[in-house]
Structure formats: structure tokens, C-alpha cells
Computed example of a mutant assay.
Amino acid sequence: MTEAQAIDRLSAIAERYDAFLIDQFGVLRDGRAPYPEAVETLVRLKDAGKSIIILSNSGKRSAENDRRLVDLGFVSGSWDWFLTSGEVAWQILKREGEDVSDGRRKCLLISRDGDLSPLAGLDLERTASGADADFVLLAASEGDVYPLSHYEALLAPAAKRGVPCLCTNPDKVMLTKMGTAFGAGRIAELYEELGGSVRWIGKPFADIYASALDFLGHPDPTRVCAIGDSIEHDIAGAAKAGLHSVLVTTGILEHASDEERRKLFAEHGASPDFILPKFTW
């Protein structure tokens, strides 16, 4: 792995790339509000003629995240597409549902704040029990509300029956208004520990990058740069897709030392091309 180059602002490298894939939580915003300068930086990057996809491990669909970002104060039109793992998964389930002719499948949905949008428009029957579910859709975590044992009790019957699980948010740590909590990815790990099988959708897995690059018209991957705060998801995912990357030191690794970051580079077999203190122009 090559040594990452420290930069103090995004404008230092913007001309090297035609498109940017930018993470939401930890780069543009925390669990409460936009980071200082993030709104302006996104606008200035778009004004520089760059294609921009907000690439997020959110179990919610793209349109809902798009609206939420505008409500938080980001400028509509300063990105081209808000692509979420939830959107990719919804499209997969839509296609799979068209091939099913033996009745409606029962889905145990694990989401946040009662959100049912991951199932909207799909020919699925929701169930509250793992005992009769045909599959589990793991879209979000309420790890700031419930302990992991709550999810173990809910999911154990499904895992015991060998019910497949689709995890649409691989993040193992999430940012909340009260700080960090375990994310949907940790619940998916728990499901595997209980003996169940998980199909992972989102960063660092291939499906979401394939959708992003298809939207961009299959550009030269070395002219595409991913920006994120997670080495495991953003940096490793970019490396697997053949993209360049920037690690910002806000977000989940805000308090990590340089040595701790280097250990994570080695653990996940990926190092960013650049390290940026925060998302600023």
C-alpha cells in the first residue's frame, strides 16, 4: 500500500477527477446537522463541473435521503444523484419479485423509527415474527434505543430456520444525536453468528459501485474519487472498485490516532490516496 498524501482542502486535488462519490454521515454531516463548510464545499465542487453522487449505506431509498439532505440545509442541485444501499436493494427485490410466481413472500423488516419505505411498492407481506418470515430485510438499527440482545431474540427464530437475510446498511457503527451506537451491520454480523446467511448490499460491496459507475457512464475509474470517513467501507470499497479515495478525519475515526488508522489500513488491505481533515474547499 502506498503512503496517503495529506491535503488541507479538497480544491487541491479536484482537477484530477471528473466525478466524486461522497459519503453522507461523517463527511457531510454528523448525527445532528451539516459539518461547517460542508454545504458550501459541495456547491463549489459542483460549480467546478464535477459529477457528484452521494453514496450512502442508508437502508432508506434514494428519494427520501435526497429530501432529508435538502431539509438539513444542503443546496438542491449540488449533487447529481443520492444513491443508497437501500435503493440498490429495493431494485434487486423488485426484479426478484417479478420472477416469483408462488405467492407473496413474508418479510421481517428491521428498520428505524417505524420506517416502512424499504417495502413500499414491493409485492411483499410484512411479518413481525422471525418464526414465519421467508426472508429478513435488515435496513437500519436502533442501537441507541435497544440492546443487541433485543435483536437476538427477534432474529434467532429466523436464523434457526435458515431464513436468508438481506442487509442494506453494512455500517457496524452509526452516528446518532447522542454519539455512536451499533449499526445495522453489527446486527447482520449477529445474524451470521446465530447461524443465518446474509447478503450484504452497500459499501464496500460491489453492487452499489456498479450502480454508481453505470449512472456515470462507465468512466475511467482512476478519474473517480470516493470520499469517506470509514476505512472498512469507503476506502476499502473504493479500492475494490479501482477508484481513488480520500479519507476525512471527521466522523467515526475523529478521535483515532495516526497509528490506529494505519492499523486499520493494514487490517482492511486498503489505504486512501489522500487524507483530509474535513470536507472543505
Rank of each mutant, 00 (worst) to 15 (best):
G121I: 09
V248F: 02
C165D: 05
A12S: 14
K263Y: 06
A131H: 11
F135G: 03
R29W: 13
A89C: 05
S78W: 06
E259S: 15
L216C: 02
R68L: 13
T180N: 07
D23T: 11
A210I: 10
R9C: 12
S85P: 00
R44M: 10
V248T: 04
L216M: 03
Y151K: 04
R223T: 13
V198S: 00
D80C: 10
I52M: 05
D134V: 05
P204Q: 07
L124F: 01
A139L: 08
L243E: 00
Y35G: 03
A38V: 07
G179P: 08
D71T: 11
A131P: 09
P221H: 11
E193H: 15
S117L: 12
A89D: 01
Y191M: 12
P36W: 08
Y209T: 01
I208K: 02
E64D: 13
C107L: 04
D207H: 10
A140E: 08
G143M: 06
A238H: 02
L42G: 03
D102C: 04
V136F: 02
P157H: 04
D234N: 13
E125L: 09
D132A: 12
L21T: 03
W79L: 02
L21N: 02
T250E: 03
W281I: 03
A14H: 13
L72K: 08
F25H: 11
L138V: 09
E192D: 07
K60R: 12
L155E: 02
I92E: 14
R95V: 06
D30G: 15
L83D: 01
V136W: 00
